[in-house]
Design a protein around this nucleic acid. Structure first.
Lengths: 308, 308
DNA sequence: TAAAAATACTCCATAGGTATTTTAT
DNA sequence: ATAAAATACCTATGGAGTATTTTTA
């Protein structure tokens, strides 16, 4: 169905005057008459009654006008929709992230992006680094906030950009302080106390870099790793600390996660630093991703506080 | 926005092969290539990536495909919609009716019409004859089930067709029988008892024909009209009878309206006959009306039981 | 008789066709 | 060497233009 006669019909239905309708359509009257006639012939029914110097819609024409207008509006909306999709103002962005990002970079990043692109469907999924890398390589998701390995490089399909570098602090059970199992030195955790404790931490396979950072630090102090319990989400790790199962070394932004029974303290010396960054497919041409990367780079949407 | 390139795009998105897409579109490959190129140029972004003997959608193309398909579907649906509107299989029919029709002709008529035309929006409104005639003459509504005047003719703008002729019966209060104010003769109401009672009936202005039929009958028996109460809906009239306010003469189909405290009895002699029929505008070209008239005429939808 | 729609024809823009080249495996 | 897309060029359909006639208030 050619939309031109439909536009002729819709316009004539508004003016009810061939001459003025033709003018509004940017054409002359005769072809408009012919177009309407041809349309009526195709439909097998009259759309207008021409009578006594006046033009009026038939009941049939009046009933058809609504659907015709809707179809034309849908057609016209396509150009604008394309513009928005092309410019990343509409579409879909699937962002995965490690649970630690919940307390540092994620909220501000999402807020900033969503404010600039309110019509983009932003899908947020929490996942461990290994799961995210795996998914991105399979072509799933748009980008992931990960803790990259220091030794193993990322797959070549992926690009990476650092977001934030944070010192680790210790999350220790309040009860241990009350029971004098831990004596803080000027509010800091001393190496002997750390080495005496067992640890709550991520399993190595889920986040090798984080795991290695923690164990490397403890071993560097001359200690032996004793794992009290593993868990793959920060909330769970802190919950286990509050239950007195062990000490956890966590990014300092975790201080935003207050919990009864847990005290956050600095490490006494040479706290290790954890890097969190964004990974995405090098060949991903999605405009929403490009705009997200622009937001991440702080190019738009104001300053990028606390980015590396 | 010309829908032809959009169809090219949608089809190519399915086949991901210029040659086969062109074949399915009933054209040759080169103009398809050009059409897609022109479309991409207009949009300012690539819809497909042509690489290594294969064609794939870009994220932009994939995101745009949905809206394009919807718009094309809306456009394609117009032809079928027009066909249905033209043939009266879709659209709107506004049918008004006097309250007595609720108990006789209306339910079967509506059921039969709706079964044949399930997609027509059927708007039912109860109204008195005078209100219906007035509305139809103003161009409102499609048709009305009315009780036509015997003396005054319908306005020339309207057409009329009889639907049903019914004898009147009497609706009398049960209490009057218990109190011996009424003695039935072989289950019928005798003239003296009728003349002794006051009546519950329609006001003359709402339904002159019905009013005149009742009063003419009573006066023909040598009685004087005493009006206990007027009401414009049959349900109300019967409710007033049940309250012992008077006798009402009603179409025999009202027996379908059983109500405690009300007894329906035949009239002893020469019961008057009430005609109910359908009125519509002679110049109304709505296809839904034409189909409704066909149903009324019993031409389609099986036999037309109890039509005049 | 004047205003508006219909008819008759003319023209040209462009969608699509054919022939051919380029490209990548 | 072959399959597939791009390029080059051509054709003709039909949408819109101009001129004119018909209709009716």
């Amino acid at each position: 169905m050619d939309p031109r006669p439909l536009r002729h019909f819709a316009t004539l239905a508004e003016t009810l005057h061939f001459g003025r309708a033709a003018e509004r359509l940017g054409m002359t009257q005769p072809p408009l008459s012919q177009s309407i006639q041809a349309l009526e012939r195709r439909l097998g029914a009259a759309l207008f009654v021409r009578t006594k110097r006046s033009v009026a819609l038939t009941p049939f024409g009046a009933a058809w006008l609504g659907p015709v207008r809707e179809a034309l509006a849908a057609l016209d909306a396509l150009a604008e929709k394309a513009r928005r999709l092309r410019d990343g103002d509409a579409g879909r962005l699937e962002l995965s992230f490690v649970s630690t990002a919940d307390y540092s970079i994620l909220p501000a990043l999402v807020q900033r992006y969503a404010a600039l692109h309110p019509d983009v469907d932003l899908i947020l999924t929490e996942a461990t680094t290994d799961v995210q890398i795996e998914a991105l390589c399979r072509g799933q998701g748009s980008a992931g906030i990960v803790i990259p390995g220091t030794t193993e490089a990322l797959p070549p399909r992926l690009r990476y950009r650092p977001l934030i570098r944070e010192a680790l602090i210790a999350a220790i059970p309040e009860s241990w302080i009350a029971e004098r199992r831990i004596r803080l030195e000027r509010g800091r955790l001393s190496p002997p106390d750390l080495l005496a404790a067992s640890l709550v931490l991520f399993p190595r396979r889920s986040s090798p870099a984080f795991h290695d950072l923690v164990t490397g630090y403890v071993e560097g102090l001359g200690g032996i790793i004793r794992i009290a319990q593993e868990a793959i989400q920060m909330q769970t790790i802190i919950a286990l600390v509050s239950a007195g199962m062990g000490i956890a070394l966590v990014p300092e932004s975790l201080r935003h996660l207050a919990r009864t029974g847990v005290r956050y303290v600095d490490l006494a010396r040479g706290a290790p630093v954890l890097e969190t960054g964004l990974a995405w497919r090098a060949d991903d041409a999605a405009p929403t991703l490009a705009r997200f990367l622009a937001v991440v780079a702080g190019e738009i949407g104001g300053a990028a506080p606390s980015l590396a």
